[in-house]
Amino acid sequence: MKNQIVKMMGVVAVSAVVFTSCAKAPEMEVTNAKAAVEAAKTAEADRYTPTEFNALQDSMSVAMNEIETQNSKFALFRNYKKANATLTYVTANAPMVQEAAVAKREEAKAQSEQALTDANNLVAEVKMLIEKAPKGKEGKEVLAAITSDLTLVELSLNEVSTLINNNDFLTAIDKVKAATEKANMLKTELEEAIAKKGKR
């Protein structure tokens, strides 16, 4: 009888140890998930894929609340499976959000660089047209105005280069589009003046 009671108490003690040791807060998983979210943020996911990034952050909050919910329970009843699953989801999804952000960023970068190259080519074209434009008295003032405007376009394109160097690709695209529109207007004006001169 005595042996039976001692055995029973032993089982209870072992079970208690097993239960408490299994229900440990997922510290490593939290660290990994936080690092993954931080990496996505470093890749400017909050700017290029904001919806996905916000969802990721929200999942992280859900996991942290779940951990705290379990921490509020009696040690024997704690269960971090749900928190673990959410953290695993965050850790697995963060690189995807990061990749999507990097892809969008690279796309914006390529787009801004291409637009800048095209705009610089257009400026070179306008400069060539200025050389071809009528140089007489009648063209002098108009050419001076066009040259002055072209200088402003070039200054704007210099700002675009700075924006690209600062990785602000979306603003760079806005600026290069405005400069391109103005350069195209100058080109049309010059082409018309040259055509008019040719007819005379």
Partner: peptide, 16 residues
């Protein structure tokens, strides 16, 4: 004239 041209550039930039 420069103020006008720069205003035009900024306006198009804002539109974008």
């Amino acid at each position: 004239r420069d103020n006008y041209t720069n205003a035009h550039l900024r306006y198009v930039e804002a539109e974008q």
